[in-house]
């Protein structure tokens, strides 16, 4: 459905990174391989690469974020780029400036890449369609649509433990309806050929026609976690209680919270992931989040390498080739 030309240049290389949709397994694997090279190169000590020296990257955040923004910032710094953080959540658009005016203003400062987070679905696409051809756009989360760098760091983390995806069964648990992370994860996992993706959530937090995403939906952890290799827990926004999506945090935790007991429903060596920030005692028990099956902090450090890979590929310096 998605026009893939928007993300790829004429040679089929990554120009923007807006969504997983429309990208081939080959490109996704290239991102993962490039990220791998950054991880192994910087294993002993933090190292800087001169790949983006002289390039200017703008972190354009229309929505608050700590970890995504910091990892993008670190990734850019390690690639020797100049980075400008623009926090729009509290500036221009609240003064009535349109999205396009903001972009045009920043573009006039001769930047090479925008890393964009925006509360509305489609914002990153819109910006990609309205900036000069030499500028790359990285989607750092748009509304409820996509968060493709998060999905890539998640599959990267999974790949470190399960290099062969073909027999893998992955369950994503929680607020799928409002989750851009889930949408991108589903696409990445399916593109890379996992055996099965399951979603486990109360009916109120699953979108209509959810099977059309290429998944199987469950409303019950017992059935949903059976025979699962990887469990990805999603953050539950506390305001969901106020709009009648759920009865209470404690009831949610009883039904869908990942406890050590529920973890036993999955395969013996099942891995636990969470894009963060976590709500302890709401979607995940502390003992599981901090337990030996948890990859949560690993995800964070992998986030830097994966974002370095995507940024360097999109500015097309051909790292690792």
């Amino acid at each position: 459905m998605m026009n893939q030309n928007l993300q790829l240049n004429n040679e089929g290389h990554l120009k923007h990174f807006l969504t997983i949709e429309g990208l081939s397994a080959k490109i996704l694997n290239e991102i993962l391989d490039t990220a791998e090279s950054f991880v192994s190169m910087s294993q002993q000590q933090v190292q800087k690469f001169p790949l983006l020296r002289g390039k200017t990257i703008v972190n354009l955040f229309f929505e608050n974020s700590t970890r995504t923004r910091s990892t993008f910032e670190l990734a850019a710094t390690r690639l020797s780029a100049d980075i400008l953080n623009v926090d729009i959540a509290t500036s221009a658009t609240s003064k009535g400036e349109s999205l396009l005016d903001t972009i045009n203003t920043l573009e006039a400062m001769h930047v090479d890449m925008f890393v964009v987070r925006h509360p509305l679905s489609g914002a990153a696409h819109f910006i990609a369609q309205h900036t000069s051809p030499h500028i790359s756009i990285i989607n750092a989360g748009d509304g409820q649509h996509a968060h493709p760098t998060q999905a890539m760091l998640d599959v990267f983390t999974i790949r470190q433990h399960h290099p062969d995806f073909s027999q893998l069964k992955v369950a994503i648990v929680g607020d799928i309806l409002h989750s851009r992370v889930a949408r991108s994860q589903i696409q990445a996992l399916n593109t890379l050929g996992v055996k099965e993706v399951r979603l486990i959530a109360p009916k109120t937090l699953l979108p209509a026609h959810v099977e059309s995403l290429g998944i199987r939906a469950y409303h019950d952890m017992k059935q949903g976690l059976d025979d699962i290799d990887v469990i990805i827990m999603l953050r539950l926004q506390k305001e969901r209680m106020n709009s009648a999506f759920l009865a209470s945090e404690s009831e949610y935790f009883k039904c869908f919270g990942l406890t050590e007991e529920k973890l036993k429903l999955a395969k013996k060596d099942a891995l636990v992931m969470h894009p963060g920030p976590i709500n302890r005692g709401v979607e995940i028990a502390s003992s599981v989040a901090d337990g030996n099956k948890s990859l949560i902090l690993k995800q964070v450090s992998n986030g830097i390498a994966v974002r370095m890979a995507i940024m360097s590929m999109a500015i097309q310096v051909g790292v690792g080739k």
Binding site: S121, G122, D142, G143, Q144, P207, A208, H209, S212
Partner: peptide, 15 residues
């Protein structure tokens, strides 16, 4: 529309 397209693209939907 609250259908396949809105689910796919994460658009606020109307049943």
């Amino acid at each position: 529309h609250e259908g396949v397209m809105a689910t796919h693209y994460g658009l606020p939907s109307i049943p």
